[in-house]
Design a protein around this nucleic acid. Structure first.
Lengths: 198, 198
DNA sequence: CGGTACATGTACCACTTGGTACACGAGTGG
DNA sequence: CCACTCGTGTACCAAGTGGTACATGTACCG
């Protein structure tokens, strides 16, 4: 089942899915929108589920590459890193892909076959990256993990908000509040224990 | 299309959906699992979409009631409020309903018919509640809105994490880091502007 | 030339889907 | 007793589903 036109197909399929959603998906409709026959989709991907697997892989890979394009510069402060990240992700041009991501996430969490692969690394890979970056600044791994987890949650949560409400100003303000508070109080973590407590 | 056994049906349908997911839903399977015929579901709810609408309404109402059961005590500090909220929501017993919530959210954001109603108030109602509570403590509305937005994002984001990874200890630690940081730095918001800036 | 791998179109299949038609039974009020 | 509504079961429908069989085209390679 190798191929080269297959890649083009996949790209077009992902774009189409980003526009129309996964649930309202039938091989025939999809194929028509993309300019093929449903026969070809099955030929290239084996089955509908196989297609979904590939789509998930693709958006995972796009996510990962977006991640690696990020400022690996250890000089940039965490608060600014999260600001930059948000600025990038909140761009309306990316909304369709984020909608698709959350739709797949929602189905993956329900155990829908093919999508479950999305869950592996959907959190961990980000944490690992942050641990590595923080290490160069001398931050202990456990602290970096926890903070990365929090930052990721803030961004995903606000993205969820943004996609539902469209309120760019409101979500921007909330993120700024987080970043500012982070600069002010978090880095040393004055209060209670900060690492893993179990 | 009124009825009283209808309510029982709806409750059972929601429970079943929480276990099995919405996408893998056919009126027939659902009816069989719930102990009726697909004929009855259509009789009571008019159509599949009508059923979905009702399900969305139901889980919205459950969410709202869970919200109103929350500590309305203005004496409890915001950081403790978010801790209590998290403790309540992170309970594995609620996971099926949260999976269902995120699945529906994912489809709603894609414009899937019937689910879109979920988006109205899915953020705003929480903000409004917090504004009201904060007012009794003298916090200006705009600040309360922004902070509530952030807190909601943290909780939803961490919930997304928890459902994907199952890492209770890790997500607990991240939330504690947020709550502690909030106590330490946020309330006065020392840094930049905090309200809406647009 | 011929073979062989990739690619594609046509036709078909069994099955499931949401929805409907219709008959039937139980209860209730005139 | 009749009429009427509510609830339910059986049977059916057209449309669409994912998947397959098979024939065909197109290219490169020996």
């Amino acid at each position: 089942m190798p191929g080269e036109a297959r890649e083009h197909l996949l790209a077009r399929v992902v774009d189409r899915m980003a526009e129309q959603g996964v649930s309202a998906l039938s091989l025939r409709r999809l194929a028509a929108d993309v300019g093929t026959s449903h026969r070809m989709l099955i030929y290239h991907f084996g089955s509908k589920e196989g297609l979904l697997v590939e789509v998930v892989r693709e958006i995972e890979s796009r996510q990962r590459s977006a991640l690696s394009t990020m400022e690996i510069d250890p000089a940039v402060q965490p608060a600014d890193a999260i600001r930059g990240m948000w600025r990038r992700l909140a761009d309306p041009a990316l909304w369709p892909y984020e909608r698709l991501f959350f739709e797949l996430y929602g189905q993956a969490v329900q155990g829908y076959p093919g999508t479950t692969a999305l869950l592996e690394g959907v959190v961990e890979s980000w944490l690992d990256l942050n641990v590595e970056l923080a290490a160069r600044r001398g931050v202990p791994a456990e602290v970096a993990r926890t903070h990365a987890r929090l930052g990721l949650a803030v961004i995903r949560g606000l993205l969820l908000d943004l996609l539902a409400t469209g309120d760019r100003a409101g979500t921007d303000a909330a993120l700024e509040a987080f970043a500012a508070g982070y600069e002010a109080g978090l880095p040393g973590l004055p209060g209670p224990r900060n690492g893993a407590d179990s």
